[in-house]
């Protein structure tokens, strides 16, 4: 029950935001996030922006992998 979509915020008005995901646009609820601004990236689920996205999956993955690498070196 978790189909989520990362999308760019195009505009914000009141409690709602227009988001764009690869050219598909929709108005979603922005009521659960503070200080949303155009250009932010958000995770959208069932028409609700549920989180701001702080970095890319590549960045996060490489951070995690570096950490594992350090752990492994320490253990050896």
């Amino acid at each position: 029950m978790c189909v989520g979509l990362s999308a760019r915020v195009v505009s914000v008005k009141g409690g709602s935001a227009v988001i764009d995901a690869s050219g598909a646009r929709r108005t979603v609820s922005a009521e659960l996030l503070d200080e949303l601004e155009p250009g932010d990236y958000v995770m959208v689920h069932a028409g609700i922006a549920i989180a701001k996205i702080t970095n890319s999956s590549e960045e996060e993955s490489s951070q995690i992998m570096e950490q594992l690498d350090e752990d492994a070196k320490r253990d050896n």
């Binding site: 978790c2 609820s29 609700i48």
Partner: peptide
């Protein structure tokens, strides 16, 4: 229906 992800909606 749905888990915590969907409940807020």
């Amino acid at each position: 229906v749905g888990f915590e992800t969907t409940v807020p909606s």
